[in-house]
Design a protein around this nucleic acid. Sequence first.
DNA 1: TTCTATTGTTCGGTAATTGTGAACTAAAGA
DNA 2: TCTTTAGTTCACAATTACCGAACAATAGAA
Lengths: 93, 93
Amino acid sequence: MHALSDPVRISIVAELRKAEEGLNCVETTSRLKCTMPKSTCSQHYRILRESGIIHSERRGVELTSKVRRKELDSRFPGLLDAILKAWRREHGE
Amino acid sequence: MHALSDPVRISIVAELRKAEEGLNCVETTSRLKCTMPKSTCSQHYRILRESGIIHSERRGVELTSKVRRKELDSRFPGLLDAILKAWRREHGE
DNA sequence: TTCTATTGTTCGGTAATTGTGAACTAAAGA
DNA sequence: TCTTTAGTTCACAATTACCGAACAATAGAA
């Protein structure tokens, strides 16, 4: 819950869900159009990773991350959908 | 989301949902069996109130709070249920 | 009314958390 | 090897949360 309570992290998760093939830090920040230092981005990804929300995989020089949909849906059915739906409602899009 | 990301606040909301007639700060802390100074409890209630999750009403010397079920369910259908369900799963009960 | 007990809020200082730049590591290609 | 790109780690600054003390509000007793 804490991992998803931060507005930046929720928007990262929302972007990751839209991108089938996953995203890396640089792509994420450019899509979010928010100027965020890479150290900050790295921290957010670390929190999402350690809380089990995303899974990251190295592809050459970059790190591609995806939302762990299946694991989340089986453990907490409907949770992520409800949170993202609520977030979209508040933040347009 | 931020209001519900704190473990103490989630457990307060869980207790409030169980109590039909609402609870005040003192009752809440005793039910949660956590030693929490009243100033801290007051802060948590304030955050829950300002985020629109609970509604508080003065009854004599005490302040009785209830979860705003209808408003939350109509604005964010399924959200609170999903969060509380996930929380119970992690914290037993 | 005045005193007392109870409930909750506000305020200020401290503790804990978060954000960020600088230095560093890892991989790939010239 | 040197360079470039992507991300991590570390240390410190900035922000936020916690908590005790003083305060406000209500109700009942004296």
